[in-house]
Write a protein that binds this DNA or RNA. Structure first.
Length: 289
DNA sequence: ATATGGCCCTGGTTGC
DNA sequence: TGCAACCAGGGCCATA
């Protein structure tokens, strides 16, 4: 399930590969996809624009797009990477649980559940594949709307004071608070469990009942876990792969996530599993208090 | 206002 | 061996 480190890895990979390329054709295959913008409008708008940059905000991939140009003409006259200028629109991709954004040669076989194919000047394609269709695709015209902003704060940027304020007075479990995207953006089930383990805090503790020291431990644990995972290319559980189809390696570092019954790496106690806010939750009963 | 639980959707795993 | 029930959970929505 792509969370902040996986989305960061994918956004970086896609950016390196397609930045500066012009989209010459856009194909949207499924009309059952919960598109935030009608698929026909997205396809029509994407065609002819240059991908200026691709980056991550929370769990969202934001593609910055230049003004419309003549796709067929541009193909032969615009060297790759020379385009500049301010973005005129954004294409927002949320991968949901099983979404993938892949860069591939146009001739390569099209995987099942491929919902979008963007043909690029170079002959390659940017493809959106999502078996469970929990992903979301949105078009934003920057001439009429503000740039995309996630509701919650970035865990890698928030300072100790603001972090503590997010949890103050809250009655819900600290794990549920970590997963709430309107508080923090980008944290999902894996990194919530792993950061709580690293901070030594039980997932069912009330968010508002944590001491200031515990909250600061949690914030630091979150930063360390997320940055470590980014360095390793994310966690490959289920079928996650990056823009090149390469797996990440952080799953090998997991201390608690999906390790129910296995010995804690620190103390040897069997890892326990329970349900918090309807999500499978893993913790060490000895190391976490 | 905050918090909770159901729903969507498919593939992999489990159980009979 | 085969097939059905079950589980995975991010975000959104209705409800308390």
């Amino acid at each position: 399930m792509p969370e902040l480190p996986e989305v960061e890895t994918i956004a970086r990979g896609v950016n390196e590969r397609v930045r500066g390329e012009r989209i010459v054709a856009a194909w949207f295959g499924s009309h059952r996809e919960p598109f935030k913008t009608p698929p026909a409008e997205q396809a029509e708008q994407l065609e002819g624009r240059v991908l200026l940059a691709i980056h991550r905000t929370g769990k969202h991939i934001v593609c910055e797009l230049g003004p419309k140009g003549d796709a067929s003409f541009a193909a032969s006259t615009q060297p790759r990477g020379v385009e500049s200028g301010l973005p005129e629109a954004q294409w927002i991709v949320h991968l949901g649980m099983t979404g993938r954004l892949l860069v591939t040669d146009a001739g390569n076989p099209v995987a099942a559940h491929t919902h979008v194919r963007l043909t690029l000047v170079s002959g390659r394609e940017l493809r959106f594949v999502d078996p469970r269709r929990f992903g979301r695709l949105e078009w934003r015209d920057l001439r009429r709307a503000a740039p995309f902003r996630a509701a919650g704060r970035e865990p890698l940027e928030i300072d100790a004071e603001a972090f503590a304020a997010l949890f103050r007075e809250r009655k819900l479990a600290v794990k549920a608070a970590l997963l709430n995207q309107s508080l923090l953006t980008g944290v999902g089930n894996i990194y919530a469990d792993e950061s709580l383990f690293r901070a030594g805090i039980r997932p069912r503790r009330g968010a508002g009942r944590l001491s200031r020291a515990e909250l600061e431990r949690l914030r630091q644990a979150l930063v360390e876990v997320l940055e470590h995972a980014i360095r390793l290319g994310g966690s490959s559980v289920s079928d996650y792969v990056d823009a090149d189809g390469v797996k990440g390696f952080f799953q090998l570092q997991h201390c608690v996530y999906q390790r129910t019954g296995q010995p804690c790496r620190r103390c040897g106690t069997a890892i326990r599993r329970l349900l918090v806010g309807g999500r499978g939750t893993h913790y060490c009963p000895h190391c976490q208090h």
